[in-house]
């Protein structure tokens, strides 16, 4: 899989308001599903939709503060860094996906290599 393919920079995947507060939406991508989260405070984050524990879909978890609780075994994941928190700190990290907000639109980038 080491075909170095350059991906177009930023892709508009929808409006910030398409992601419910304290919720998440999925965006399929060649790297697997990407989860976009929106906190109660309205901040948005993107992580690969794969829990560092056993790959649970983080987009299905409960979002609270700036964290999400994985639906499979309840690890808490920091939305900003993708890192496991609390008792599971240091055990793993969900990759952060580059996300930028422009005029209320969500722009994702997979810049890098596949």
């Amino acid at each position: 899989m080491n075909t170095h393919v350059k991906i177009p920079a930023w892709i508009d995947v929808g409006a910030v308001s398409d992601v419910p507060r304290r919720g998440a939406r999925r965006v399929p991508s060649p790297r697997g599903d990407i989860a976009i989260f929106r906190t109660g405070d309205g901040e948005v984050f993107a992580l690969l939709d794969k829990c560092p524990h056993k790959g649970g879909p983080l987009s299905e978890g409960i979002v609270h503060g700036r964290a999400v609780t994985c639906p499979l075994h309840a690890w808490n994941i920091d939305l900003a860094t993708g890192e496991a928190m609390g008792a599971d700190k240091g055990k793993g990290c969900a990759p952060v996906i580059a996300l930028r907000v422009e005029d209320g639109r969500l722009m994702l980038s997979l810049d890098g290599t596949l």
């Binding site: 399929p28 060649p30 997979l110």
Partner: peptide, 16 residues
């Protein structure tokens, strides 16, 4: 409905 549909499929084929 939004629970069951991806928000966008525009990333799916970005690897051209």
């Amino acid at each position: 409905n939004e629970e069951f549909t991806p928000m966008s499929r525009r990333m799916e084929f970005v690897s051209a």
